[in-house]
Structure formats: structure tokens, C-alpha cells
């Protein structure tokens, strides 16, 4: 049995190594291509601090923060999706579907309206907004007996309530979200390393904690009663895990806006490739989410170069059809 276990772990390990390789390649491509193409050699030189002049400035101050934003937001939203889908035992739950992203968005908008200039506060506000969204979902799912469709419907309702809140804030304080359209669509333009720093720490710590709780998440997949009968304080753990999901989604929304689909799409694709063991699913989703956003960001710059499509538009144009395909496949009775 041990040899079988090793081979299964080995296969997943290879897949994760492959994903990591793809992330590396797409990252270099992301830094190299755009309105101005920079040879990969110069990209590496700029990263190592040996670069000079405009190209080094483009790499370090325009494209590197953008790349880091893609990797961080992708990883955070995808892992948030894995956790939410696992805890609620619902494959259709994802941060953007059940109102977690829009909750974070509303809190960010409120924070920018009430305390303009306090960039460091936005991840904190976004966390509480996302947490409010996630707790409402949990409350409704408990009350409604966790019926899958009720949960999604309630999430959609909550999303539109939060979105209306964002609209209201923007109507009264048009300056609150300076690039409101960008925020709404989601994107990683005009980022700086300083703006990313608070979100980076939140995401890193939340990811590590989530990975350390992967066995607990696995147990919750068996259903709450089975998990509890195996010695898991299920109620408490659900809360802890949803808080981690809120921290991840909130931190991502605080700088990348309301990016859809990453949190839904990535776990669904990777669940097929690595199975449902949470440790591998979280790890591969962190890489896969980053990869997806990096590639979409590159595409958004190249398709109509020198003009740019917003990242959220490219993501939704690719994610939307996938989601529809998923629904059609489920309808045909295949398990997802």
C-alpha cells in the first residue's frame, strides 16, 4: 500500500511541479511582453538589479507589481474557492457567487469613502466585508438546511445587495473609488509594491494556515456529522476555515477589485486533475489561480496591443463559457 500511496503522491507532486514551471514561464512572459517587448535576458537582468534605463523601469515599476498582483490575487481567490466549496460542501459556491467578493468590495468602497488616503486600511476593511458575506452564507445555509440551490440563490441575492451598496457609495462619493469601473471589472493595473505589501502578508499567512488545516478540510468534505463523529469540532472549524477564506478573498479584492470566476474556475479544473485531497488541491489551486490570471493579464495586453482590455473582461470571457459548459455537463448527470 505504501508504494501505491507514494506513486499517487508522486503523480500529484509532478503535476504541481509542472504547474510551478508554467507559472515561472508565464511570469517571465508577462514581464517581457506588452506594448513594449523586452528580451527575457534583460528582464532577468532588471530583476537582479543589473538593468539600466527605461526597460528596467518598465519591468520593475510597471510590470512586476502587476505580475505580483496577478499571482497573489489568483492564488488567494482560487484557495478561497477551494475552502468555501469544501466547507459548504457545494461545488457551485465560490467567493464571487456567494457574495464574499462583493461584501469585500462594499467594505473597500466604504473605507475609501470614509477614510480616503488610508491605503493600509483597505485589506482590513475588505476582510471584514468578506467575513460578513461568508458568515451570512453560513447562517443562511444552516437555516435553510444547506440545500445547494437555496445557498446559491441566497448568495446571488446577497451579491446584488452588496453591489447596490457599492453603487450607492459611489453615487454619493464619486471620488471614493477613483477607478470605479476598473474596480468593478477587476484588474491589476496601476499597482505598486507598497500597495500590495499588506495584502501579501495576509494572503501568505492565510494560505499557510489553510494548508496546515487541510486534513480538517478533508474531513468536512465527508459531511458535518461524519466529521464530528471523527473527532473534529466541526462547528468551530467551519468558522475558522471560512474566516481564512474571507481573509484570502478580502485581501485579493482590496487591490484587484471584483475579479470573478478565478475562485470558481480554478478549483473545478484542478479537482479533476489532482482529486479532492485538500492539501494538493489548495497547493495546485494557488499555483493554478496565479497562472490563470498571469496568462489572462498577458492576453489582455496583447490581443488589442497597444490598447489593453481589462483583466476582468478577459477572465470572464474565458471563464463564462467554461462555467456554462460545467452546468451543461452537470445537467447531463456527470458528477463534477
Amino acid at each position: 500500500m505504501n508504494s501505491l500511496r507514494t506513486s499517487s503522491v508522486g503523480r500529484k507532486g509532478k503535476l504541481i511541479a509542472l504547474l510551478a514551471g508554467l507559472v515561472l514561464v508565464s511570469s517571465i512572459a508577462n514581464l517581457a511582453f506588452g506594448a513594449v517587448s523586452i528580451p527575457p535576458g534583460e528582464v532577468v537582468a532588471a530583476l537582479l538589479g543589473w538593468g539600466r534605463g527605461t526597460t528596467a523601469a518598465i519591468v520593475l515599476y510597471a510590470r512586476l507589481p502587476r505580475l505580483c498582483g496577478c499571482l497573489l490575487a489568483g492564488a488567494a481567490l482560487a484557495c478561497s474557492g477551494v475552502i468555501i466549496q469544501g466547507v459548504l460542501n457545494n461545488p457551485l459556491a465560490a467567493p464571487n457567487v456567494i457574495g464574499v467578493n462583493s461584501g469585500a468590495g462594499l467594505a473597500t468602497a466604504l473605507c475609501c469613502a470614509l477614510a480616503p488616503g488610508s491605503v493600509g486600511l483597505t485589506p482590513v476593511a475588505a476582510f471584514f466585508g468578506a467575513l460578513a458575506g461568508v458568515l451570512l452564507v453560513l447562517f443562511i445555509s444552516e437555516r435553510a438546511g444547506a440545500a445547494r440551490i437555496t445557498l446559491v440563490l441566497a448568495g446571488v441575492a446577497m451579491s446584488s445587495i452588496f453591489s447596490a451598496g457599492i453603487d450607492a457609495v459611489v453615487t454619493f462619493c464619486p471620488d471614493a473609488l477613483a477607478g470605479y469601473t476598473d474596480f468593478r471589472i477587476g484588474g491589476v493595473k496601476n499597482l505598486s509594491m507598497a500597495r500590495l505589501a499588506p495584502a501579501f502578508w495576509v494572503i501568505l499567512i492565510a494560505l499557510l494556515l489553510a494548508l496546515s488545516l487541510s486534513n480538517e478540510l478533508d474531513l468536512l468534505l465527508l459531511g458535518r456529522e461524519t466529521a464530528q463523529s471523527l473527532g473534529l469540532p466541526a462547528k468551530w472549524l467551519r468558522l475558522v476555515l471560512l474566516m481564512l477564506a474571507a481573509a484570502l478573498a478580502g485581501a485579493a479584492v482590496s487591490f484587484a477589485g471584483l475579479l470573478g470566476f478565478v475562485g470558481l474556475l480554478t478549483p473545478h479544473i484542478l479537482r479533476r486533475a489532482v482529486g479532492e485531497e485538500s492539501f494538493f488541491l489548495l497547493l495546485s489551486s494557488a499555483l493554478g489561480g496565479g497562472l490563470l490570471l498571469t496568462v489572462c493579464d498577458l492576453a489582455s495586453r496583447l490581443i488589442f496591443a497597444p490598447f489593453e482590455l481589462p483583466l476582468g473582461v478577459v477572465l470572464s470571457l474565458t471563464g463564462g463559457p467554461f462555467f456554462i459548459w460545467l452546468l451543461l455537463k452537470q445537467r447531463r448527470g456527470s458528477s463534477v
Binding site: S8, D218, T226, L230, G231, G275, E276
Partner: peptide
Amino acid sequence: SAKDIAQKTAYLPQSRSVPNIT
């Protein structure tokens, strides 16, 4: 605690989810 009980009693509920694991 849930852990103490789980070391003394195993429980197989009537309906169980079937996760995609080995």
C-alpha cells in the same frame, strides 16, 4: 470532547457523501 468520543465510538450515518478520494 469530540475527540474523546471519537476514540470510543465510531458512527456511520445513513447518508454519506462520496468524495473523489482514494
